[in-house]
Every structure is written in C-alpha cells, then in structure tokens.
Design a protein around this nucleic acid. Structure first.
Length: 358
DNA sequence: CATAGCGGGGAGACCACACTGCCGC
DNA sequence: CTGCGGCAGTGTGGTCTCCCCGCTA
C-alpha cells in the first residue's frame, strides 16, 4: 500500500505512505505540509535555482509573470514524491501539469508553483491531487508574497519524518504543498485505502489527534500511538474504525462539515501587509549570506573558486579572489568592528551564498 | 517521584541599504 | 512658498540562535 487518504473529523487529509502530516490548522481543517527532504530540491535540480533560468523573470505586456515551465513543475512534483524512501515511493505515479500559473496578487504570493496536478495511482487506490507547490526561491518579486510568515514557518523541519527536524524554513528550500481537498474529496475512490487495518488504525490516531487542531497534540498523538501499539490496542482501534463512515459522520454530515470547512478556508486571510513593494523587491534581490543581508560588494563571495583554478585567473579575477579571501579572513570583521564575526567565521563551512547579479 | 537530557517549535535577532519623511537653508 | 540637500529612521526576507515545553530514560 503506497498511498493512504484519511478523512478526518473536520476535513480530508491526504496521507502519503508512512509519513505524518505536518500541520493541522487550528480550525481542525487539515493542511498538508511536505517539507524538509525536499529542501534540497535545488541542490538536485540546480537549473531550478539558476537565476538565468528563472521562469518568473519573464512577464507579459500586462506585467503578469509567466509561471514555471512544465518540466520544472514536473521536476518539483517528482521531487515531492521522491522525498520518501525509495521503498515507499508511489507506485505508478503519474504527474500531470495543467499549465496554469498564478498571476501576481493572487495571495499566497511569493514563490509557488500552481496548477500542479498529481495523479497518484497505486495498487489499491487512485487519488487525484490538485494543489500548488511553493518554491523556495526568489522569483524576482514577480508574485506578491502574502503568505504569513507563521504559515511558512509552520512547515519547517523534517515533516516527512514523524519526529521531524527543527530549524528549517522556507528559505532553506522548503516546499509548501496544499492539496485541494475539493478534488480529493470528490474522488469516489478515496475510501478504498481505508479498508486497510493499518491505515484504519493510523487514521483513528490521526482523527483523535487532529480533532484538537493542535500540532502539539499531534506530537502527543505519536506517543499515544506508541502506547496503544499493543495487539489489544490495535485490535480495539481496528474494531472502532471498522465501522468506518469515513470518520464518525455520515455522508451528509461529512458533506456539511466539508462545506463548512471550505467556506471557512476561503475566508482565511493569509495576507501580509507590504507597505512598500519596492522594499520587498529590494529585499528579494538583495544578496544574502546565511539569510542575512550582505553588502553588495560581497556578493561575489557566492561561488568560492577552487584553488586549482587560480593558476588561470586573470588579473581582475585575482583581485576578486582577494576580496573573496578578505571576506573569509577578517577583512569584513575589520570593517565592521567584529560585528559580523559569525558571518566571517562560518564562510568556509556552511556559508550559503546567493548572488542575484546586478 | 525527581532529575537530566533531548528534540521540536516559536519568537525574535541579525544583516545591508534603498527609500521615506522631516528639517533647515 | 518652493526646491534642494542632509540626515535619521523605516522596512524588507532568509537564516540562525535562544528559550520554552513536552517527552523519555
């Protein structure tokens, strides 16, 4: 069994393989967050992180940014799915791309691919997914960044792993994937996976946990699941869930709750007020060193040149190398009175350089 | 039962600098 | 009154650090 679809008390929840959902919104409606293993997406597909390959840098006469190419979206979707262990990868996964892109100002701005359709086919089920995938990179401010920071932070960590991992954030390359439950719910086959005792058990745990709408409770739920992992507990849970009406509600009740959820979802306000769009554009384009704004003249620290190449450098390149070296070894500290000690001291190990070119 | 250790998550700091608004001339 | 220059303050986003809380040994 490769794909489970859980329908929770208050909404639907698509659950892929053994991975746990990352977040359940406070109103009990489930938002699904994929994340951290995908954070390395652009390490795997460097072309997606190539400024010269930026699909959003192109705009039509109306100023509407073009979206990602189909290949990019498919690559993103493939990565989304490939984040699971190989043995758990979706079987027979097919990825479609409807070619639609968000125009600027659609909310949820920032960096995301839209119109991404996933059609997941497994031995037991066939689940259609339609949603959007946020991309963890700068698209030159072509799309408004209206996602609340809290939302973006919320999926941090190795959410694909049950225990997760801290420290992640959007900038680390996180994906934000929100399935469109409209599509999922309307799939007539979504109940089929629930025939599995294993999934029934887990769905039961999820239901208990998610009804609180609290991620902290989700964590407690893990403990609960462990505590109930005895055969007796499992059997009990299975018996409880065997009368599945997809949750404890009838079809009509479920429909009502889902419509309620949809209405509530549509009223969500994820807008982050940007007082000065120009500042956002500047901030988006500003070079960074480990997330911090860096001086413009430090931007060429981005690509540390291998020592072997120094023999062929020109004079100008040698000068650049000298600046680059200074950035590594105290030149910056001298300039800033040591305020940047952390930055300077970390260059060699894990500095992440972003160069957007001017 | 008490304690230490561990891990996850939230909040906030940090950075550079274009831009804004105010003031004086 | 208008225009200009100078100055201080503001705002922007990605990453990291600190701290709190819950769980486990």
């Amino acid at each position: 069994m490769s794909s489970d679809l859980f329908v929770l008390d208050d909404s639907a929840f698509f659950h892929h393989s053994s991975h746990s959902p990352e977040m359940v919104s406070s109103d009990g409606a489930a938002d699904l967050f994929f994340s951290d293993q995908l954070c390395s997406t652009f390490d795997v597909f460097p072309e997606l992180n190539d400024p010269a390959h930026d699909p959003f840098t192109t705009a039509d006469s109306n100023g509407t940014a073009f979206g990602p190419t189909e290949a990019e979206a498919v690559a993103a979707a493939a990565l989304l799915c490939s984040s699971s262990p190989p043995s758990r990868q979706l079987e027979g996964l097919t990825i479609g791309y409807n070619g639609h892109h968000l125009a600027p100002g659609n909310g949820y701005g920032g960096d995301f691919y839209s119109g991404l359709e996933l059609e997941v086919k497994t031995e037991e089920c066939h689940v259609g997914l339609e949603g959007f995938v946020t991309m963890p990179r700068n698209y030159g401010g072509a799309v408004n960044d209206d996602v609340e920071k809290v939302m973006q932070r919320s999926y941090s960590g190795n959410s694909f792993d049950d225990d997760g991992g801290g420290g992640g954030s959007r900038g680390a390359g996180g994906f934000f994937f929100q399935p469109r439950f409209d599509t999922v719910l309307e799939s007539q086959s979504y109940q089929q996976p629930l025939s599995s005792p294993e999934s029934n058990f887990f769905a039961g745990q999820l239901r208990r946990v998610c009804s609180t709408g609290d991620l902290q409770n989700m964590r407690r739920g893990k403990a609960t699941q462990r505590s109930l992992s005895s055969p007796l507990a499992t059997e009990s849970s299975f018996t409880e869930e065997s009368q599945f009406k997809v949750g404890r509600y009838s079809a009509e009740e479920r429909k009502e709750r889902i419509s309620k959820y949809r209405a509530k979802r549509s009223q969500r306000n994820f807008t982050k007020t940007i007082k000065y769009a120009c500042r956002k554009t500047l901030a988006d384009n500003r070079p960074r060193i480990r997330g911090r704004f860096a001086r413009n003249d430090e931007s060429y620290c981005e690509i540390p040149k291998p020592a072997a190449s120094s023999s062929t450098t020109t004079r100008d390149e040698d000068e650049d190398d000298q600046h680059w070296f200074d950035g590594f070894h105290g030149g910056e500290e001298e300039e800033d009175g040591g305020n940047n000690r952390r930055v300077g001291g970390c260059y060699g190990e894990q500095a992440q350089f972003h160069y957007y070119g001017y």
